[in-house]
Every structure is written in C-alpha cells, then in structure tokens.
Design a protein around this nucleic acid. Structure first.
Lengths: 195, 195
DNA sequence: GTTACTATACCGACTGGTCGGTACAGTAAC
DNA sequence: GTTACTGTACCGACCAGTCGGTATAGTAAC
C-alpha cells in the first residue's frame, strides 16, 4: 500500500511527533514505537521511515519542543515595549499566560524532563537553557530582581510536574505583579531589612 | 556465599535505595536491576530479597524521597518562630538553603519526575503535594503572597532539571528576601499599580 | 494515452537481544 | 536454625530495528 489518505508526509511527521509527545508524557520514554505509530495512524514501519531510530525521534521531539517554546516567548514580545526587561516580560507571559496553548507549553516542561534521559537531549536542553539565560540576563534588569522573576515563573511552570493544578486567577494575578516588578525593580530592592 | 561484609540488612536496603536513585536519575527508569544491585555492592538476587519487584523498589524509593523532604521541611521549622508563615519559611529554607544536603534535596526533585512514570508513584506524589499545599495554605499568610513565595521556591528547586547551576549567592539573597516577605506580606500587596 | 520506470510513503511479519522475574543450591554470620 | 545473602541458570515477554513487499504519484519516452 502507499499513501492511503490525502495526508502529506509533513503532516504525518507532525502527527508522529505529537503522538510521541503524548505517549512519552504519560508512559515515559519506554513508550513503544508501535504504540506511538498507531496513535499517529501509522504503522511502525511508517514511523521508522520518518525517524531512523527511537533516539532520533526523541531528539527531534526535543528540538521541536525547544523551538516552539522559543517561538512562544518571541511571540509574546511587545513591539511597543522598548524598556529594559522586555524579554523577561515575554518570558513571564509565555510561562504564565492562560492562552489556549498554555497547557501545551507547561505540559512540554514535564515532557522535556522525561526526554533528558537521552544524553543527547540533556546536552541540547542544557545548551538551550544557557542561551536563554544569557538573553534574559542581557535584558537590562538588576540581577536580583531577575532571579526572583525567573524563579517564580519557572516555579509555576513546574507545578504540573507534581500533578497539582494551580488555580488560574492566582496565576493571572501573579503574572501581572511580576511584570509590574520588572517595571519597578527598585520596589523589590527596597524591601525593608529588619534584623 | 553469605553475608560478606559486616553490613546490616538495613544498611543494605539503604544502599539499594541510594543506588537506585543514582542509577535512575542518570539513566532513567530503564536502569537495570542488575546495574542497581551491583552499584550497591549486592547481587541481583540480593536486591530481589529486599524488594520483590522493580515497581516495589521504585515505589519505596519514592516514599523515601517524599518522607525525607518532609523531614527536611520539618527540620527547618524554627521553634522560636510562632508567627504566621512559619511553615512556609521552613519550606523556603528546605528548598533554598545551601546545606550539605541541599544538593540531595534538589536532585531529588529531578528524580521524582522520573519516577512518576509509574502510576502508583504519580498518585503518591499527587497526594503528597496536595497535602503539603494544604498545610502551606493553612499557614496564615495571604494567598497572593503565598503563591509568589511558593512559586519562587519551586522555581529554584526545579532549575537543575534544565541542567543549569544557579549561583549560590543569588539564591541566598533570594531566600532572605522571600522569608522577609512572609513577615511583611503587606509589602507585596502594596506594589503600586500603574496602567 | 498507454507503457515503463522511478521515487516516495508506507505495511507488517520476523528476528535478535535485553531485561524482569523465578528457582535453587550453597554459605557465612548471628 | 534463622537471616541474609551469593551465584548461576533459565524462562518468557517485550520491543527496537530489519526487510521484503506494496500502493500511489510523477515523469517521460513513444
């Protein structure tokens, strides 16, 4: 048999990556190739046609996730915003914003942690993190404020790892406050010091 | 052969749990029983003697990690501190303090995320998180301040997941500021609102 | 406009190795 | 004699990767 449905190879590839993500997120990296393939409406042979090995599939999935996260951040840059901290604000929005793809972004975090068992992926993630951090630190905010804002954003995005579902309104408020902080870094730095 | 070294069964059990943690942290849940056993200086048969199955070993490891984290938090409760937010402060200290076991606590986070691929562990973690959250919310702090403090602490502890090593001084400062915040929640709530 | 051929995009049966778990006989410490 | 193992041998399941086959689209000579 050949191309049965009117689906383009690129669509199949996409479907395979999505299916792999879904499967690995729930079942871990021991998710079967067969399982992934079938979930994408393809046979195992078809999967292998697109991705030579399981490791390659996983590596490609990792690349895809990192790239899409980058795109999320970049997409949330405010063109009208030229003040220091604009990139940090986009970062916060990407991690906290309750858009339709918010779930996707945050679930991706949980997924990546699974993928890092493949050494090549671990390196990839490490390099990407370093790069992202460098960009954030070149954003013009005082380091101590940046540390807080990044930590808070990361914390919220890591919450689903523990199965917890944080309530939306609280996150929205936190988002607004964090962004406000990047505009008034002095506020945080002037927290009165007792003792 | 029999008991070769003068090691108590409890020590062997401990060694097995530690070895399992180390192996799974680096190689994922597909780490071999044989591998784990040898790393603990025990044969595979010896491992099975203590843990009937791999799932049981993993489940026990998860229990151990959760319990030791609880112990960490409890151990950092200040007996002289009776103000609202005392439990939250212990939580922050447990996650951010640069003690000798700090690395252990934070690495444990990365490990647990691996273990959650076993459904029973996922439930366990979920239940534990819910409980912990309930205790934190019953700590007398305003919810919005609590959200920030928890998120920031979680964020720092999740950083090693991405391979990044955050610099100590920055974390120490953040720790002090977060604890300060729990003592002056109004400060955060009075962050001026422009726009 | 039919024939011939090629490239693409798969299918699915099979294989070879890996790994969890079992079984058991022996053995050293307590 | 019980506990706490060692060491070996083995079974069965599962699974990644291989491979021969197949359907379809495109191309191009005639």
């Amino acid at each position: 048999m050949g191309r049965t449905a009117g689906r383009s190879p690129e669509d199949t590839r996409r479907a395979l990556l999505d299916a792999a993500g879904e499967a690995i997120r729930t079942r871990g990296v021991n998710a079967t190739l067969d399982e992934i393939a079938r979930h994408a409406g393809v046979s195992k042979g078809g999967l292998i046609y697109h991705f030579a090995s399981k490791d390659e599939l996983i590596l490609e999935l990792a690349r895809d996730l990192l790239a899409s996260f980058r795109a999320q951040v970049e997409g949330r840059l405010d063109p009208a915003d030229t003040e220091p901290g604009r990139y940090t604000r986009a970062y916060v929005r990407a991690l906290l914003a309750p858009a339709a793809d918010e779930v996707a972004v945050r679930k991706a975090m949980a997924l990546i942690t699974q993928l890092t068992t493949v050494p090549a992926v671990a390196e990839l993630v490490d390099a990407d993190t370093r790069q992202l951090n460098a960009e954030l630190h070149a954003d013009g905010l005082p380091p101590d404020v940046l540390t807080l804002v990044i930590a808070a954003a990361d914390g919220v995005s890591s919450a689903p790892l523990w199965g917890e579902t944080v309530d939306r309104p609280a996150i929205r408020q936190l988002e607004r406050r964090l962004i406000q902080l990047t505009r008034q870094p002095a506020w945080w730095q002037q927290l009165p010091w007792e003792e």
